[in-house]
Amino acid sequence: MASDDVAPVVRKLVDPPEEQVERVVDLLLRVFDGDNAMESFSGQDKAIERLIYTLTIRKTLQSGECYVARSPRSSEIYGVATWLAPGIDWDFHNDPTFLAALDPALREWYNEHYASKYNELHRCLDVPKNEKGTWTLTFLAVAPESRRKGVGRALVDVISKKALSNNQSIILDVRDPTVVQFFQRLGFKYRCVKNVVSRGSPGFPIWRMYKDPSSTAASR
């Protein structure tokens, strides 16, 4: 494990077996257990939460890149980052498979509240469109016992270096102020924040963060 202070091995997943996808989903479920935003997104239904992670992983395998971190001494996965490639416009809350799985009350929350807040958040990103494209980080998760050991940075650096070499940008949404600080240390800036209200669980903020090629280079 990362607790042995050995540098993590970061590996891109390519056509992984279903068993490995399930292991990554299990990690996401563990990392985000009790997270206010995920409880709102899923209506506190673990089956819906699992569907969110599964759809996201499959989409990034198809139209982006998915990386996992593990120790060179073990095959145990303790970190994951899922990325949508430039030019891919996809959000789990607009996916037909996801919408079909929701009960009417949760679908109404997405349609009547979350969708408008999400659109406002994206419109407030007042930066020029990058003609070379923009990567989107959809999930970054590190097991609690493996944090503060460079795992998250290693998972982000893979695409940061690729974005730098291709003059591309990176965007992401963050729902935890401590995580905002983590990304700021990596050269990201936040453009705006929106507060989301949920009927079934406490509300949560979403910060939209952005890193352009010049700041990518500066943070190396």
Rank of each mutant, 00 (worst) to 15 (best):
F139Y: 12
I159T: 11
S198M: 01
P177C: 01
V180T: 07
V156N: 03
I170A: 07
F183N: 03
A115H: 14
K161P: 03
G150P: 09
S165M: 11
D103A: 11
T134P: 01
L125Q: 05
V180M: 05
A141W: 09
V158I: 10
K132S: 12
K189L: 08
P177S: 10
R153S: 15
S116V: 14
V197L: 06
V151Q: 00
F188H: 01
D176M: 12
N195E: 13
E112K: 12
S169E: 04
Q184Y: 10
V151S: 00
A115G: 08
P177E: 01
S146C: 09
R175N: 13
F182A: 03
K129D: 13
S198R: 02
E131P: 04
K189G: 08
L125S: 07
N119K: 10
H113M: 13
P128I: 08
W135S: 07
Q181E: 10
V179S: 02
K194D: 04
E112A: 13
R153C: 13
E112I: 12
R107S: 14
P202C: 03
Y190R: 05
L140Q: 00
V174M: 03
P202R: 03
E145F: 10
L137A: 06
D126C: 12
H122M: 08
R185T: 13
T138L: 12
S201D: 06
M209Q: 07
S116G: 05
K189W: 11
V127R: 11
A143S: 09
V142I: 08
Q168A: 05
H122N: 10
K161A: 06
K129A: 15
V158K: 04
E145D: 13
Y190C: 00
E145S: 14
R191L: 14
F183V: 02
W109C: 03
D157K: 09
